[in-house]
Nucleic acid binder design. Structure first.
Lengths: 222, 222
DNA sequence: CGTATCAACTCCTCAGACAAGCTGACAACC
DNA sequence: GGTTGTCAGCTTGTCTGAGGAGTTGATACG
C-alpha cells in the first residue's frame, strides 16, 4: 500500500532539503509566500502549511510583517526516533552510562525521601516478581530504577532516563518472553544491594553494583 | 487585547492542552476541521495550520478522507531546549556519564583508525592550547573528546554527545574567560593519558581518567 | 543630525469553491 | 450465508481572492 504525501508535506521536505543544502544561512530570510508558491508550483496556503510544519519542528520562524527566517539548518534530532532505530545493545549501554553515574551521585545526595522511595519501589518489585503479569513487573522494575536516578537530583540525568524508558520497556517485554527460568525476576537481591550502597553513601560500590546489574541485562539480550 | 502569538499558534497550544488533559486518547480521531474551527471560533485554514504545526511535532497525524488522529499525548521533549534550561553543572554531569562510559567501551573496541584519530586531534589540541583564540581551542578540545566517544562505537552515546556539544561549547566560552591562569589549556597531559589508556585497552583506567578530568571541569565552573 | 511620516512589503486570517480520499450502508451477486 | 460492487456522505487537501495587521526602509521635515 503506497501512501502519497500531501503537497504541503512535500513542500516542507523540499524546503528542508534546500535549507540543509546551504541555500539559506541560519537567520536568513526566505522569499515571500507568493514567490515560494510560484517557485514550487503550489498555492499560497500550501506553502503556509509547509512553513507551519517546519515552524513546529523549530527549523523556521515566521514573523508577521517581516518574513520567514531560518532557525536551524536541520530538524533537531528526535530522540524517540533515534532510540527506536538504534541497536538495543547501544540503548542499554546508554542506559548503563546514565544509571551508573546516577547511582554514584545518588550515594552522595540521596535524601530521606529518596530512601523511603527505595523502600516502597523495592517492596513493589518484590511482590510483582513473584506472580504478577510481565507488564506489571516491568513497571515495578522501572519504577525502582527511576527512583535511583531521581535520587541523583540531576534534572538532565532524570530526563535522559525518561527518554530511554519507552524503548527499554519494549525490550524488556521481548527479553522476559525468552527468559524461561525467570532469571531476571530473581535478582531482587541485586536491586536491594544497590539501594543499600546508596543508603550508606558508598558511591563506588553503588556505581559498580549498578554497572554489574545492567551489564548482566545487556548480556542477556545480545 | 494584545495578541503576541498568531491565532494558529494559539490554536495549536489549545489543542495540545486538550490532548494532554486526556480529552482524546492516543489513536483517537479529533472532530472535523469545520467543527474545531467553530469550537475555537477561528477559520478553517487557521485550524489546518495549527494541526499542521502539531503534525510537525509528531503529536497529530492527518489522513485525507479519514480525519486527524492523535499520535502522542504531548510533544516529545526537545533536548536542545532541555539542555538550554538546565543547570550547567547538571549538563556537565550528564556529559561525564556519557564520556566515562564512552572511554570504558572505547578501551575495548577502539580500532587502528580510532587511534589515528586520537593522534590527530591531540596534536591539534596541543597546537591550539598555546596561542589560538578561545573558539579555535574549544573546537580542538571538543574534537578530541568526540573522538573518544566515537571510539566506543555506540551510536546512542555518539548522538548523546553531539546533542550536548552546543550547550557545552557555550559553557566553555564563559569558563575560559574566568580562567585567568589558563589551567584548562594546560591539561594536555590529562588528555593524552586518556588516549593512552584506551590504546593499551585498560578500561578501568580510561574511565577513571575521564571521570577525573571531567570532574575537574565541572568543579572549575561551580 | 534626529525625527516623523508613509508607502511598500510582509505575514495573518477568513470565506468559498472544488478535488481527492475514506467509510459504512446497502443492494446485487455467487 | 458470504462476498463483492456501488454510492452517498463524510473527511482532509488545495487553490484563490479579499482585507487586516505588523515591519521596514526611504523620504521629507524640523
Amino acid at each position: 500500500m503506497i501512501r502519497r504525501h500531501p503537497l504541503a508535506e512535500q513542500a516542507a521536505e523540499e524546503l528542508l532539503r534546500r535549507i540543509g543544502s546551504g541555500e539559506w544561512e541560519v537567520g536568513a530570510k526566505l522569499p515571500g509566500e507568493t514567490t515560494l508558491a510560484a517557485q514550487l508550483g503550489v498555492g499560497r496556503s500550501t506553502i503556509r502549511e509547509a512553513v507551519r510544519e517546519l515552524a513546529g519542528r523549530r527549523v523556521l520562524e515566521s514573523r508577521q510583517g517581516a518574513g520567514v527566517f531560518v532557525l536551524a539548518l536541520e530538524a533537531s534530532e528526535d530522540w524517540d526516533k533515534v532510540l527506536r532505530k538504534a541497536d538495543i545493545t547501544d540503548v542499554l549501554e546508554g542506559r548503563l552510562a546514565i544509571e551508573t553515574e546516577g547511582a554514584r551521585l545518588a550515594a552522595a545526595r540521596r535524601t530521606p525521601d529518596d530512601l523511603k522511595n527505595f523502600r516502597y519501589t523495592l517492596a513493589d518489585r518484590r511482590r510483582a516478581a513473584v506472580s504478577a503479569p510481565d507488564d506489571w513487573y516491568i513497571e515495578a522494575d522501572m519504577a525502582f530504577h527511576r527512583a535511583v536516578v531521581t535520587a541523583a537530583h540531576n534534572a538532565v540525568l532524570t530526563e535522559l532516563f525518561d527518554t530511554f524508558v519507552p524503548r527499554i520497556r519494549r525490550a524488556m517485554v521481548d527479553m522476559l518472553k525468552m527468559d524461561e527460568e525467570h532469571r531476571h525476576r530473581n535478582d531482587q537481591a541485586a536491586h536491594a544491594a544497590i539501594a543499600e550502597a546508596i543508603r550508606v553513601k558508598d558511591a563506588d560500590l553503588a556505581a559498580s553494583l549498578a554497572r554489574e546489574h545492567l551489564s548482566a541485562v545487556r548480556n542477556s539480550i545480545s
